[in-house]
Simulated assay, not measured.
Amino acid sequence: MQLGTRWAAGAEPPARLSPEFVAQIRAVEADLPPDEEGIARWTLTWLEGRPVAELDTGVIVEVDHAGRVTVRHDDEDEFG
């Protein structure tokens, strides 16, 4: 795993993320309560060369083994 960066929800994500990945991040942010925007923070890591962004609220946006951008919550079984 390689650590990437952190940024506040609503701020510009790192430029090296694909447009599809950024679109999913924006969709998650659109569902945040107004008091979370700018306070909740994303943490970007790279796992096997694929981006994984986790919001402080536990929402995870990642690229799966097939190259699809997926959204899940950290309490969901990632293998189920």
Rank of each mutant, 00 (worst) to 15 (best):
W7F: 13
A23S: 11
T57A: 02
E54H: 12
T57I: 05
A53T: 11
W42H: 06
D77L: 13
F79R: 14
P33G: 05
H65A: 15
A9G: 04
L17E: 04
E20H: 15
V59L: 14
G10V: 03
R68C: 10
P14T: 08
I60P: 11
W42D: 07
I25A: 04
H65C: 10
S18L: 06
P19G: 14
A53Y: 07
P19T: 12
R6F: 10
P14C: 08
D64Y: 02
R50T: 00
V69L: 08
V28D: 08
P51E: 01
D77Q: 09
W7C: 06
G58D: 02
V22I: 14
D35Y: 09
Q2S: 03
A30K: 07
L44A: 04
P34C: 09
E62G: 08
R68T: 10
A30I: 00
A66V: 12
T45V: 15
D74A: 07
A11Y: 15
P13M: 12
A40C: 05
I39K: 00
L17Q: 05
A15Q: 15
G80T: 07
V71R: 13
M1S: 08
D64S: 01
E48I: 01
P33W: 02
P13H: 13
A30M: 04
P33V: 06
P14I: 08
E76Y: 03
V63G: 01
A66R: 14
G4D: 03
A40V: 00
A15E: 15
R50D: 00
A23E: 12
A27I: 04
V63H: 00
P14H: 05
E20W: 12
T5M: 09
A40K: 01
E76K: 08
F21E: 04
V59H: 13
A30C: 02
E78K: 13
L3W: 13
P19V: 09
P13C: 10
